[in-house]
């Protein structure tokens, strides 16, 4: 065997992969449902540019997971947007090197 390539190039690639596999294992959605959703997003993203199967592949993965979670009412789009902003603020309010916690930007 030749040396393997890294399986995930960034932590969030691994995280979104694991989330999807885990949700499927919990029967949150069926795998054919997932591949259909993911395939549709890949097709949409591939209209304007040719996807190289790297970062753009996982970007499509994130979008597909958001869509399947909101369609199945596992997650609300508005809450996701708020949480995303909350995490961004928390990162910016946390000193470098410290553990980032959601709400770190809010007064105790």
């Amino acid at each position: 065997m030749r040396a393997p390539e890294p399986v995930f190039e960034a932590p969030w690639h691994a995280q979104v992969f694991a989330l999807t596999v885990h949700l499927h294992a919990q029967a949150a959605f069926g795998w054919p449902e997932w591949t259909e959703q993911f395939g549709a997003v890949l097709a949409e993203h591939g209209v304007d540019k040719e996807l190289d199967g790297g970062e753009d592949y996982f970007l499509a993965w994130v979008e597909a997971l958001e869509r399947i979670c909101t369609t199945k009412e596992l997650a609300e789009a508005q809450v996701l947007a708020q949480l995303k902003e909350g995490w961004a603020r928390a990162y910016l309010a946390t000193p470098h090197g410290a553990v980032v916690r959601l709400g770190a930007d809010e007064p105790e």
């Binding site: 960034a10 932590p11 969030w12 995280q15 979104v16 989330l19 949700l23 996982f58 970007l59 994130v62 997971l65 958001e66 979670c69 596992l74 997650a75 609300e76 809450v79 996701l80 947007a81 949480l83 995303k84 909350g86 995490w87 961004a88 990162y91 910016l92 309010a93 946390t94 000193p95 470098h96 090197g97 410290a98 980032v100 959601l102």
Partner: peptide, 22 residues
């Protein structure tokens, strides 16, 4: 030069939001 933590890229924050909510 980075007094605060480095802000992860946009999709990483979206994944964190999903994880947090779920």
């Amino acid at each position: 030069d980075h007094a605060h933590s480095v802000l992860p890229p946009d999709p990483a924050l979206r994944v964190k939001a999903l994880e947090t909510l779920l």
